[in-house]
């Protein structure tokens, strides 16, 4: 009661605002709840099953759920995707077990894990049936692209940022050139170049996977943005830090690794996470080079004649899933920031 009094009804104006807000909520919430839950249809074979009810047709999501998650990945092989993600989950859980060396887990995640995941996903060895990347899709594809993009663009961005501040003219020019070139073009054109133009330049017969090309394009693109975010952090670290480290005999790389980057990266966590979130959502652009990520596959499903008129449900579902992922990243970054706070 005291809290209510102090925060919501402290002045007549404040009380008025509170009442107005309550009234607006009263108007808005019941119809939304109605549509989302009370009047919704939860299962059925086609759009027709939803006709009797006013609310959302969740039967559509239910019927296509498998496809939204795995794309056209053959159902008898879907356990491989599950296994790879469970493996990743187990590795991540290791971070929270006290006594386990974090650096070891990080090394495991960065080196052997991607190989194992690649073999599980695409098959072709270990007696696993080969599955072409053209069949990958849905949330699975989105997570693969985002995961690879994030893990590749982060270190690459750091190197570019260091390069841009290097004393060596050649390295500095290359870094600046790369960053400015990539930042100056839209991601769509990078993806187009990666998927359409690159093969034209490659010699006949040399042809590598379309997904791989898209991954390289996205990673390079985000690395350029990451580089500028990281550079902002590097610039905020006083020169005295480098001088102190160097006067103790630490070389350039050790100084960066132990003194400068830990401080600079901590400062730019919000910006880095911002870039990660942007990257996560930008993965939807692979749609234009003919790959069906999560959004793409949901959109494609809404055009199914059996399910005409379910576009709203599809997009609401999509938005909810994207939001869930992005919001988790944001919360996780806040918790890291708090943990790293040493009060300076």
């Amino acid at each position: 009661m005291v809290w209510l009094r102090r925060n919501l009804f402290s002045t007549p104006f404040n009380s008025g605002l509170t009442l107005l807000t309550l009234y607006l909520l009263w108007l808005a919430i019941p119809p939304i709840v109605d549509w989302l839950f009370l009047q919704a249809t939860w299962s059925g074979e086609s759009r027709a099953a939803c006709e009797p009810n006013e609310g959302a047709c969740w039967a559509f999501i239910d019927a296509r759920f498998n496809q939204f998650i795995y794309g056209l990945y053959p159902s008898e092989a879907q356990w491989r995707v599950d296994l790879a993600f469970i493996l990743l989950g187990v590795l991540f859980a290791g971070f929270f077990i006290p006594g386990v060396r974090r650096s070891w887990i990080a090394v495991l995640i960065l080196i052997p894990y991607p190989l194992v995941a690649w073999i599980l996903f695409s098959g072709g060895s270990w007696g696993l049936e080969e599955i072409d990347t053209a069949q990958w899709g849905g949330l699975f594809l989105t997570l693969v692209i985002a995961g690879v993009g994030i893990t590749a663009s982060f270190p690459l961005g750091i190197l570019l940022a260091l390069g841009r501040r290097s004393n060596l003219l050649v390295i500095r020019s290359i870094s600046i050139g790369f960053i400015e070139l990539i930042r100056g073009v839209p991601l769509i054109s990078v993806l187009f170049m990666a998927s359409v133009m690159l093969p034209l330049f490659l010699p006949e017969g040399v042809n590598f996977d379309k997904l791989l090309r898209a991954l390289i394009g996205i990673s390079l693109f985000q690395a350029a943005y990451m580089a500028e975010v990281v550079r902002g952090g590097l610039q905020a670290i006083p020169k005295g830090q480098t001088e102190a480290a160097e006067s103790l005999g630490l070389g350039y790389w050790r100084t960066m690794q132990l003194i400068i980057l830990p401080q600079a990266l901590k400062l730019v966590i919000p910006g880095v996470v911002n870039t990660f979130i942007a990257l996560f959502k930008d993965t939807t652009l692979v749609l234009i080079i003919g790959m069906f990520d999560f959004l793409g596959i949901v959109q494609a499903a809404t055009t199914d004649p059996n399910w005409l008129g379910t576009a709203v449900e599809g997009y609401v579902f999509c938005a909810a899933v994207y939001w869930l992922f992005c919001f988790s990243m944001s919360r996780y970054s806040v918790s890291i920031e708090r943990k790293l706070d040493t009060g300076h």
Partner: peptide, 11 residues
């Protein structure tokens, strides 16, 4: 070397 502004590593 000892500096005017200490330059300890704050992290």
């Amino acid at each position: 070397m000892i500096f005017q502004h200490f330059n300890l590593f704050p992290h």
